[in-house]
Design a protein around this nucleic acid. Structure first.
Lengths: 233, 233
DNA sequence: GCAAAAGTGTTTCCGGTACACCCATGT
DNA sequence: ACATGGGTGTACCGGAAACACTTTTGC
C-alpha cells in the first residue's frame, strides 16, 4: 500500500458515554479501572481504533463489549485532541454517546468490566478529560431531546406516559406539567396504546404504550420543537 | 516517554469547510489541487495533525494558511473515519467549519493555494468524502443559525438589516418577510445603530448597524429560537 | 373513605405571521 | 413623478402554559 510521506501517525481512541434511566434518575455507566493507566480510578469505557475498522463500528464494538447491547441510539459527540489530554502518550479521542434501555444490559459483561450505573448527581471525578466529555454529552442530550424525539431511547419496550415524563424531568432536572406533557406527546402520534396496564404502579395503573416505529423514523430526522419552554443554556 | 503497547497509530487529518457570503450567495472556499493525490480535482482545504498541536489549533492553522484570517467562528463539525475514505492510506479526518467575513480574506494567500470562492449552487464534485462533509456542514449551519445568532459571523463590521436578511435567505434558500425579520432582529438588542447610512445602496440608504459584542456573547451560548418557522429537516 | 397517581377539558396569553402603509433616495 | 427599497404599525391566529375536575386503585 502507498503511504503519505508524513511522519505523525497518532493513536486514536474512542470513549463512550452511556446514558441510562432507571425510572427515577439519569445514570451513567462508568468503569472502575482494574488496569493501567490510572488503575483504581473511574473513567468512561474506551478503546483504540483498529486499522480495519470504521469509527462508528469501533464505538459499537466498545459499547457491545461492556453491555452486550447492539441496536441502540449511538451518536458521535465530538473529538477531543488537546496535546496533553492523555499523559501516557499523545492520543486523540473520538467520543460517542449512547442512550440505552437499562433493562437490556448484560449484567455479566458489565460485571467483568467492573462497571456500574451511577446517578449523575453521584458522578465521581473521572480521569483525563472525561469529565468535560460527560458535561458536553449532557449538554448535547438536552439540546437534542428538546428538538427531537429521542427520549424514548431510554425507555423499555412498553411504558406509560408518566414514566416517559420522568425521563424528561430527569434530563432537564425540572418538573413538567403532567397534563400538558401528556397532550403534547399524544399529539405527535408517536405512541400506540397497548391496552395493558402498568402492573408495577401502586395506585391507579397507567396505560402501557409502545413506540410507533414508523412515525418515529420521521421524528428522528425531522426537527420538532418538543420542549420550547426549556432553556438550553 | 512511555507509550501504550498498541500498534495502530493512524494518520489524523483535518479538513476545513469555509463559508462566506458575498452579499448575494452563500459561498465555499475550495481549492483546485495542484498536488497529489487527486491533482487537478477540487477539495476542501486540509492538512495533517502535528504531534505537538491541539486539534483546534491545527484547524486554525489550516484556516490561516489559506485565508490569513485568524479570529473567526470555527466549530468542530464531526470526525470522519470510514476505513476506505482515503484511498492512499487509512486516515481519519476531523472536520471543522468556519464562518468568515469574505472581505477579511488575504487574496495572496488564497491565490497561492489555488483556492476560489464558489457558490453553493456551483459546487463541483469534491474528492473523497468531502461532498458528504459539506452537506453535513450545511445542515449544521442551518440548524445552528435557526437556534443561535451566528448569522452575523458572515457579515462585515457594519451592515444593514436588509443585508443581514440576505444572509439568512441564502442559508435557508427561502424568502423572509422584511418587516418581521427587522422586528425580530431588533428585538434581540444585538444591533447597535451607527447612525451612518449605507452608501452602496442605490435607492433609500439603509442604516448601518454594528454588533453589540456584549449581548452577542450571551446569545452564542444561549438557546434562542431565531427562526422557528424554518424546517430543519 | 381516603390518599395517590392517572386521565381529560378549558381558558388565557403570547409570539409568529400576514398584511397595509409611510419614508427616503436617485433618475 | 415614479420606481425601488428601507422602516414602522396592526390584526389575527395557533399553540403553549396555567388552571380545575374526574377516575382508578390499594389500604
Amino acid at each position: 500500500m502507498i503511504h503519505y510521506t508524513h511522519p505523525n501517525r497518532i493513536l486514536v481512541a474512542l470513549d463512550c458515554i452511556i446514558f441510562g434511566f432507571d425510572g427515577e434518575e439519569l445514570k451513567l455507566l462508568l468503569i472502575k479501572r482494574n488496569f493501567e493507566p490510572e488503575r483504581g480510578k473511574w473513567s468512561l469505557m474506551g478503546g483504540f481504533l483498529k486499522e480495519d475498522e470504521d469509527l462508528e463500528s469501533a464505538a459499537q464494538r466498545i459499547l457491545f463489549d461492556l453491555t452486550g447491547i447492539t441496536n441502540t441510539y449511538l451518536e458521535q459527540l465530538q473529538t477531543f485532541g488537546a496535546v496533553n489530554r492523555d499523559p501516557v502518550e499523545r492520543t486523540i479521542s473520538v467520543v460517542y454517546y449512547a442512550l440505552v434501555n437499562i433493562q437490556d444490559q448484560d449484567l455479566n459483561a458489565i460485571r467483568s468490566h467492573n462497571a456500574s450505573w451511577i446517578g449523575l448527581n453521584e458522578k465521581p471525578n473521572l480521569i483525563f478529560d472525561h469529565n468535560t466529555m460527560v458535561e458536553q454529552a449532557l449538554h448535547r442530550l438536552r439540546y437534542k431531546a428538546a428538538l427531537h424525539a429521542i427520549g424514548f431511547e431510554l425507555m423499555p419496550e412498553k411504558f406509560t406516559i408518566p414514566q416517559l415524563q420522568k425521563v424528561y424531568e430527569a434530563i432537564y432536572t425540572k418538573q413538567l406539567d403532567r397534563r400538558n406533557f401528556s397532550r403534547k406527546i399524544l399529539s405527535t402520534d408517536l405512541l400506540i396504546g397497548t391496552g395493558e396496564k402498568d402492573t408495577a404502579s401502586v395506585t391507579k395503573k397507567g396505560q402501557l404504550y409502545r413506540l410507533n416505529a414508523e412515525k418515529y423514523q420521521q421524528y428522528l430526522t425531522d426537527y420538532v420543537s418538543f420542549f420550547p419552554e426549556l432553556t438550553l443554556a
